[in-house]
Design a protein around this nucleic acid. Structure first.
Length: 285
DNA sequence: CCCCAGGCACCTC
DNA sequence: GAGGTGCATGGG
């Protein structure tokens, strides 16, 4: 572990952490989606990464290289360039004004996948609770001045039974986790996704049990750098139906394609700004 | 008490 | 492939 400082222009750590995209980051003190210290941590390769923002600098404690830290927080994108690729859009302008600095994080594939397997028919704070409970129950609590929750590895989580997941309140999604762990064990190699075209990657993800279009898009966007992905949950679909009716469709693939054609290569950023703005009431749905 | 939540699998037809 | 259903659990 060493302390490094990284330039962080056009970056808002607090918003990036609390906009509902990640379940893999934590506050060192307090709840992620609640009040608390503006210092955050996650784990990479089993080692903690702790970050705090001071103005246009990011202070990190980590074993990682600066570039890997930047990648983890979405700092490898040029945010001005991202927005310059969107078409003229009043709602997006408003969201941009309020949320400027929100980045799309890149979490580790495995914990990201398991968390989003828990997401169907569930509110965001409860998904976070499930993630934390799994970390406490099957992962590890490291003590480094404060207690740090490490999410279990694939091997560690495979030890758990469906009943044990149900005891954590995960409900019918417990089966998604158990079955998906089997498929991963049988040789599903997520690194193959990296060289796939976006639509092929989404189809490939759906080979995992409990992974449909929406969960696939979230995992690809938040852990695999597929920033074209425009996750269409009930909110997003409502927003599309109301504000972009010409792009709306009841068919997921169709709506997804329309939106990617409209917003371009960084559609995922548009989705995230619109989603968070809608959630915060900055723009109406 | 009812309603619903960052959907999904599974069953018909 | 389109359309309808059941699903665990907790909070409003």
């Amino acid at each position: 572990m060493r302390k490094i400082t990284i330039p962080a222009e056009d970056f808002d750590l607090e918003t990036t952490m609390t906009c509902g995209q990640t379940f893999c980051w934590h506050r060192t003190e307090g709840e992620l989606y609640g009040e608390g210290e503006s210092e955050f941590y996650t784990f990479r390769n089993g080692e903690p990464l702790i970050v705090r923002q001071k103005g246009n600098e990011l202070h990190a404690e980590t074993t990682l290289d600066p570039d890997e830290v930047k990648q983890a927080l979405g700092l490898h994108h040029d945010l001005e360039d991202v927005f310059s690729q969107f078409p003229e859009d009043q709602r997006l302008d408003k969201a941009r004004e309020e949320l400027w600095g929100l980045r799309i994080i890149q979490d580790e594939f495995f914990p990201c996948l398991i968390s989003y397997l828990c997401s169907p028919q569930m509110r965001i704070p409860r998904i976070k609770k499930m993630h934390n409970d799994m970390a406490r129950e099957f992962g590890e609590i490291q003590t480094r001045g404060v207690e740090l929750l490490r999410f279990p590895t694939q091997e560690e989580l495979s030890e758990a039974s469906e009943d044990e997941f149900r005891e954590l309140g995960i409900g019918y999604r417990a089966k998604y986790i158990v079955e998906t762990l089997d498929i991963l064990q049988d040789g599903f190699d997520h690194s193959e996704l990296d060289s796939m075209k976006y639509e092929d990657a989404r189809e490939h993800m759906k080979n995992l049990y409990g992974v449909g279009d929406k969960v696939a898009d979230c995992v690809l966007l938040f852990s695999k750098n597929f920033h074209q992905a425009y996750p269409l949950d009930t909110w997003a679909l409502q927003a599309v139906e109301k504000h972009y009716p010409e792009h709306h469709s009841d068919d997921y693939s169709e709506a997804s394609k329309n939106l990617r054609n409209h917003f371009g290569e960084y559609s995922g950023y548009a989705q995230e700004y619109i989603f968070h703005a809608a959630r915060k009431g900055i723009i109406e749905v």
